[in-house]
Write a protein that binds this DNA or RNA. Structure first.
Lengths: 354, 354
DNA sequence: TTGTACGCGTTATCAC
DNA sequence: GTGATAACGCGTACAA
């Protein structure tokens, strides 16, 4: 660490007190223009920047928001694709935080040593946004005693936390209803993600909602397990094709699985959506480019990050306020894999066609 | 800010001094097991986490690395796709930093107020990784007086900085040579990105290198300007199609433009690569999924972030060492748009086929 | 409008 | 192995 100049050096060189320097750096309009000018130019000359640690210690505010996310790369998920949504959340969070003049500290929580890192981060920030699957419920509760915490995409089980969640159930419900009402499919199945995924479960419930509303038989459980991966989607597809009567439409719990399945169908020369209609969930970047383009449910990832930070700011402003849960709705994106063409065959509010 | 417990509270409750508490938190093996146990459990009980600011002030180390990147979202580039490489760099940086027990602070530098934010960040970190196009050269020089800086993907003009750069020129050269030598194309053009983009220029130079080496006529400037966007790529393609003799192969400065062009060709029923071969640059996620799959040059974005942080750590360890420049090489990815099929028609070292 | 002096919570330097 | 105490650099009452 090189000898960075301090506020004392600047004050001395300016012939003013540290107080003056300090204030000039904070208030846009403080002191006589002459003093201001002088302080600012000396600071620049010396290359002085207020020390964040000292400032943080004095004000008891770090000016930093922390964002904890799971290190999905380690789970063996597809190299680049899957963890992508995390990036969008990060972007959203950064955006709002920067607008408030703060900075974002990010940390992937890994299986190894992730816990200690989380605590280290907790000591450096004013508040924490914790994404689903980063930390165990227990650790979340522990950390929440130390710094204000907002949970992201967690299942809003505990009312003791601020939450931002995506309404997975409604999203799946809307998509399933589209398949039933617009395209007239009667024989639909749902392919789920990994065991214990709350997201996958919620989507299944939405799927069932629609079947029930349409008077169709409601299954007790998903037709297959694709583990949220492309490979898993292929496997699930093979399994479905091998069954007595393959379904007319398949609602996949996410896009990766849907894309894997489409690959299988394309290779088997089974027409999509002619013989089997396919829908995904997430609207990852490639969904638009696969053939046929994938009808899916778009999650507002960026907004998720934005709202989480805003919720966190609100909490910092008023630590004693009651906890809030913000629900963000999804947006159905109708492309070709469900049977929609270029024309917009649906006019539901909040849906989109491209 | 709720009343967080301090080290005093913990020390008192344990019946030891703050020194002991402090040491237990740092050394994995300090003091008698009994004391350790006691301190740790009391810390947990009280929900105490060492205050980062105070710690930073005392040690003169923040334990935080800063990463500055341009806010491309504001440039009006395609919604989600383009800034994607930033995310990869962030991931790489986070990875290495976390491995060293540090955290990463990220900040998008926006046109408005970006500068002051950059200085604020500088005060909070031990060192800074600054991505190309985030800050003006002048601001970089200024900030570099305050904290150690590593430049990422900047043109390594100034020898006074540590750099990590991608060897764009070699990448373009290798790709162009592939088109000439393996596929035998004689009539090639290059489509550039926005005015003044050093990346685009380097790639053009590599393109020219190959032409010259093959004894083909070397153009003075790129055949068209696609501005690095999909729309720009379409426009450039129309322009090329309108010319007297459309080229046999087109080397695009990036993938977006290539994809835009492919769209035009597909709609015009012009066969790729039968009539026109296409290559891109970057290997964005969708490159693999377009039809035909796009042959392109992959940039090691993640590694870029990793190396930058490692370089920064080295600099922090030894502030007086000479500056270093790390060159990372690209990797050609041969898919179908250049004429390669499933079989690997090329055996160059460091290339890849999928 | 400007300056003095104390406190923020931790680590490091001594002494025991 | 453990404890007292002085920094660390800044913000901010309070005083002038």
């Amino acid at each position: 660490m090189s000898q960075r100049p301090t506020i004392y050096a600047v004050a001395k060189r300016c012939g003013v007190s540290t107080t003056t320097v300090s204030r000039v750096m904070q208030d846009e309009s403080f002191g006589s223009p002459a003093t201001r000018e002088r302080v600012l130019s000396v600071a620049l000359e010396l290359g002085w920047v207020p020390n964040g640690a000292a400032r943080g210690l004095a004000t008891r505010k770090a000016g930093i928001i922390g964002l904890l996310f799971p290190d999905l790369g380690e789970l063996g998920v597809g190299e680049e694709e899957s963890p992508l949504y995390v990036d969008q959340v990060v972007r959203g969070a950064e955006r709002v935080t920067a607008a408030a003049g703060q900075a974002v500290l990010i940390a992937a929580v890994r299986a190894s040593g992730g816990k200690s890192l989380a605590y280290s981060v907790a000591g450096k920030v004013d508040g924490l946004v914790i994404m689903s699957r980063s930390l165990s419920d227990k650790d979340v509760a522990l950390i929440a005693r130390t710094v204000p915490v907002v949970l992201l995409a967690h299942k809003p089980g505990r009312k003791s936390f601020d939450h931002v969640v995506v309404d997975n159930r409604s999203g799946a419900r809307e998509m399933t209803s589209h398949l039933i009402e617009v395209h007239g499919y009667q024989d639909l199945v749902y392919v789920r993600g990994p065991e214990g995924s709350p997201d996958s479960h919620e989507r299944f419930l939405g799927f069932c909602d629609s079947l029930e509303a349409a008077g169709l038989p409601v299954p007790e459980k998903p037709a297959a397990d694709g583990g949220f991966t492309e490979a898993g989607g292929k496997k699930a597809m093979w399994q479905l094709l091998g069954s007595a009567k393959p379904p007319r439409a398949i609602v996949f719990g996410n896009d990766e699985m849907a894309i894997g399945a489409m690959d299988v169908l394309n290779k088997a020369k089974i027409s999509i959506p002619g013989e089997v209609a396919i829908t995904g969930f997430d609207d990852i970047a490639v969904a638009r480019h696969v053939n046929p383009s994938l009808t899916t449910v778009k999650q507002p990832m960026r907004e998720l990050g934005e709202q989480a930070v805003q919720l966190l700011f609100a909490r910092l402003r008023d630590p004693k306020a009651g906890t809030k849960t913000i629900y963000l709705s999804t947006e159905s994106v109708f492309r070709k894999s469900c049977g929609c063409g270029k024309a917009n065959t649906n006019s539901k509010k909040g849906s989109k066609n491209d």
